[in-house]
Computed example of a mutant assay.
Amino acid sequence: MQIETFITYMTLTVLGLLPIMNPPSAATILLGLSKGRDRNYMVTQAKTAGVYLFIALCITFFIGASVLELFSISIPSLRLGGGIIILVIGFNMLFPSAKSDGNSPGQDSIALVPLTIPSLCGPGSMAMVISLAAQIASYEDHDSIVSVYTGVVAGLGVVTLIATFTLTMAYPLLRALGQNGIDAFTRIMGFLLICMGVQFFTLGVQEIVLEINELLAWQ
């Protein structure tokens, strides 16, 4: 295995994926949806989300493009779907109902949805990983291909560790803010999530319009 190639692709994966993934935004979702829950619940959700995230990233990297092609799902459609989910989460955080106090012992896990998908492994992250996989598929130096794939998987592992650590820091922030502070913080982040969802949705619409225009131009 070529160490230089391994380090290069691991670094590129981390630097390219981490800003798009934006783990602090996922931490705010965990913070907002875990009101009334104890530390063990939040840490468990954070660690479980880390496991789900690594699996989701690896699946996206190795077979993501094939899965999207199999179900005829385009990247713009992925953005639209992710935008709608983020919008719903944002509205629930900005305008919480009286029943959603987070104290129900039977509350479902939030590790997969919405922490992993679409927050951490959303349309932007998936598009980046799929693009990277397509670029590597055209790589002609077969002698170092093992180092390339190993470096990318290691990069995905590093990103997962960073995201998991960021999520685990949500509980100390919860303790520092207090109940009133977390209520205000949740509403603020709910508004920002709505803006993010609108942005995803708008990008998806723009890409679909561009595809339609290009199709009409060929006719």
Score class of each variant (00 low, 15 high):
residue 126 M to I: 04
residue 27 A to D: 02
residue 27 A to Q: 08
residue 33 L to S: 03
residue 106 G to F: 11
residue 207 E to F: 02
residue 163 A to D: 07
residue 194 I to K: 12
residue 86 I to H: 05
residue 36 G to M: 06
residue 153 V to S: 04
residue 168 T to W: 02
residue 166 T to M: 11
residue 90 G to Q: 10
residue 130 I to K: 11
residue 82 G to Q: 05
residue 179 Q to F: 07
residue 34 S to F: 10
residue 154 A to N: 10
residue 87 L to E: 02
residue 148 V to T: 05
residue 138 S to R: 07
residue 105 P to E: 06
residue 219 Q to I: 07
residue 108 D to H: 12
residue 95 F to A: 10
residue 55 I to S: 06
residue 152 V to N: 02
residue 163 A to Y: 09
residue 32 G to K: 08
residue 170 A to C: 05
residue 43 V to G: 08
residue 53 L to N: 04
residue 54 F to D: 01
residue 39 R to C: 09
residue 58 C to N: 07
residue 12 L to K: 15
residue 70 L to Q: 11
residue 122 G to E: 01
residue 13 T to H: 08
residue 126 M to A: 05
residue 119 S to G: 00
residue 159 V to C: 13
residue 25 S to Q: 14
residue 161 L to M: 09
residue 31 L to C: 07
residue 135 Q to V: 01
residue 194 I to C: 13
residue 162 I to S: 03
residue 183 D to S: 15
residue 143 D to M: 13
residue 93 M to A: 09
residue 184 A to F: 04
residue 146 V to I: 15
residue 219 Q to W: 03
residue 173 L to M: 14
residue 187 R to F: 01
residue 162 I to H: 08
residue 76 P to H: 01
residue 215 L to P: 00
residue 185 F to W: 12
residue 20 I to R: 12
residue 81 G to V: 02
residue 56 A to E: 01
residue 12 L to M: 14
residue 122 G to C: 05
residue 152 V to T: 06
residue 39 R to Y: 07
residue 105 P to M: 02
residue 203 L to F: 00
residue 174 L to V: 08
residue 112 L to F: 12
residue 123 P to D: 00
residue 182 I to A: 14
residue 8 T to Q: 15
residue 5 T to F: 09
residue 206 Q to D: 05
residue 105 P to V: 02
residue 46 A to N: 09
residue 11 T to R: 15
residue 79 R to Y: 15
residue 83 G to Y: 06
residue 172 P to A: 08
residue 196 M to I: 11
residue 91 F to H: 14
residue 15 L to D: 13
residue 159 V to D: 01
residue 131 S to W: 10
residue 165 F to R: 06
residue 204 G to R: 12
residue 60 T to F: 01
residue 90 G to C: 05
residue 107 Q to L: 14
residue 87 L to W: 13
residue 15 L to Y: 10
residue 215 L to A: 12
residue 86 I to Y: 00
residue 19 P to G: 06
residue 11 T to H: 13
